[in-house]
Amino acid sequence: MEKIIAHSGIGVPLPQNNIDTDQIIPAVYLKRVTRTGFEDALFAAWRRDENFVLNQEPYRNGSVLVAGPDFGTGSSREHAVWALKDYGFKAVISSRFADIFRGNAGKQGLVAAQVAQPDVELLWKELENHPGTEITVDLENRLVSCGAISVPFEIDDYTRWRLMEGLDDIGLTLQQESDIEAYERTRQGFKPKTLPART
């Protein structure tokens, strides 16, 4: 995974609550078996509307999304993160993220920066008044800056560390294989196994 210390890019305001994963990527796009190539699927239904923010300059080339609270609710589809990343987003800012989305984002190198709602509104105002303004998401100092605004964001320590180091989760866990084996020796015998199959 690529290391991220800080990212700067055009901010895209999406002032709407409860942007669920069916909006981020409709189910019909989940049929692919690859991990990339989802850029066309991002907000597919909304992008049919020419007034949608991503259909407008300069937001078309944005890389920092600033959304309303409860971003990424609903389905566990990691495709939502892949679609955001494939489109070019490096960070999403919201005052509240759905848990599964936040977890998926951290694993794929998309920064989910939690910013207090009044500060999110400041960012929206700034982007509205000065379209095309860049937002910097600074993981090292946990700061989001945009024009004259500089506000803190929350991200859990572990995810921040992994993002900044660009670490692969599975590789990290496999270093603990002896702990896994030790645990397996203590598992209760009555726990079910799927094999051999009984029906």
């Binding site: 990691e78 599964i100 599975i170």
Partner: peptide, 20 residues
């Protein structure tokens, strides 16, 4: 719990999950 595909791969490889 519902998990994302990266976690699916993690469970496949390790039968564990890192959880807060």
């Amino acid at each position: 719990m519902g998990i994302g595909t990266s976690e699916v791969e993690h469970v496949m490889a390790t039968q564990t999950l890192s959880l807060k």
